[in-house]
Nucleic acid binder design. Structure first.
Lengths: 198, 198
DNA sequence: CGCGACGTTGATTTGCCTCAACGATTGTGG
DNA sequence: CCACAATCGTTGAGGCAAATCAACGTCGCG
């Protein structure tokens, strides 16, 4: 069942059928169970993942072990940026699965090989990374300028598919508040909404 | 007076003397006056800058025109990431000079040419961008997890050279608080410090 | 059935913002 | 040379958004 992978590489990454056939053998299909940890801080990440379904996250913790989610990696997204694309550096984040997650994984060394076999892939990977960078920058600006309600509304707008699949506590951690606060914000929004639609 | 540029390219970017001589002609030296604007949101950035002295910033504004600084670009740093390395996209940020700033500028098209002439430069530019990405991610985590005092302490640790050269209001904007709040934090820290060193 | 995880609600506290006023410094025109 | 306005950093009083701490309802699961 690699249709989703084929579709992505051909429609989004712009590969030909032949090129995809060259690329495919490098990928190993894998199911990661909810709660399963892929990487801890300080470890070296050996794999690049492409998510077909489910959801991974990267996160760090503060001095009191409270978790802060840096990024969700959901359907049709890559997890590759940790410690830089090419370098084998100690990770500055944790990675685990929030839901049962269906991925295709390639080894880092194959990742380079692959970029050489299909040159347009290198540009694609680079543009994926740039998008991630811009998104992170946008989120930083948002976390500096916007209050919790605005950040939640932005989350609903930019990642609507995740709202009903992820636990509240994960979303709260993503936007940087405690679950109790998010609960109050949601209550406030549904009340306002029901008033508007009444 | 291009010694600083030569030093950077040879010692940090790892070029040979000959390679630097190939690269040098592409750069135009320039002084940007304090307050001068280099780019507004929506415009397309045509240049890549390398800062020899002084300080630039990238920033956005919220709905009430309050400014939020995304990044300082100080001595020996590149300003190149906006809208992605290669693409000519509408900028999502403003860029201006906080101090009188001494830069070397190259045109975007030359930037590509240059990466082809000296292949190792491409890798260097990429690693610079990755570092920026990781820094932004780290700052995001910090803005989600740490209070204002911790963020200020982190700023002092990571960019000590800027503490005494930039106005308080710029530093406050960078760490996401109003100048009054930063003033109170500084007061608190100096009192605590004088107690410790008394 | 009872246990634990999750989301909600309430009471209280707190960190930071807002608004306002005040010295210190710098630049400008008479 | 001095008076002045303007800018910048500081200080104070009051308010609000979100955290903390605690309790409770609900659901899935052993």
């Amino acid at each position: 069942m690699d249709n989703a992978l084929r579709e992505y590489f051909i429609e989004t990454a712009g590969l030909t059928d032949d090129q995809f056939d060259l690329v495919k053998p490098f990928f190993a299909e894998k199911i990661i169970r909810k709660g399963e940890c892929l990487l801890s801080i300080g470890e070296i990440n050996k794999y690049v993942y492409f998510v077909i379904g489910g959801c991974l996250r990267t996160y760090t913790t503060d001095s009191r072990d409270k978790e802060y989610i840096l990024r969700f990696i959901a359907t049709n997204e890559w997890l590759a940026e940790v410690g830089g694309y090419m370098q084998q550096e100690a990770s500055s984040v944790y990675i685990d699965a929030i839901l049962d997650t269906h991925v295709f994984a390639i080894h880092r060394s194959d990742y380079d090989t692959l970029s050489n076999i299909v040159p347009s892939l290198r540009a694609h990977f680079q543009s994926v990374m740039q998008l991630n960078y811009l998104n992170t920058q946008k989120r930083l600006a948002l976390s500096l300028s916007a209050d919790a309600k605005e950040r939640y509304l932005d989350f609903m707008k930019t990642q609507p598919a995740l709202i009903n699949t992820l636990p509240i506590s994960m979303i709260a951690s993503y936007i940087g508040i405690v679950p109790e606060s998010l609960s109050r914000i949601r209550k406030q929004l549904t009340h306002r909404h029901s008033r508007l639609t009444a």
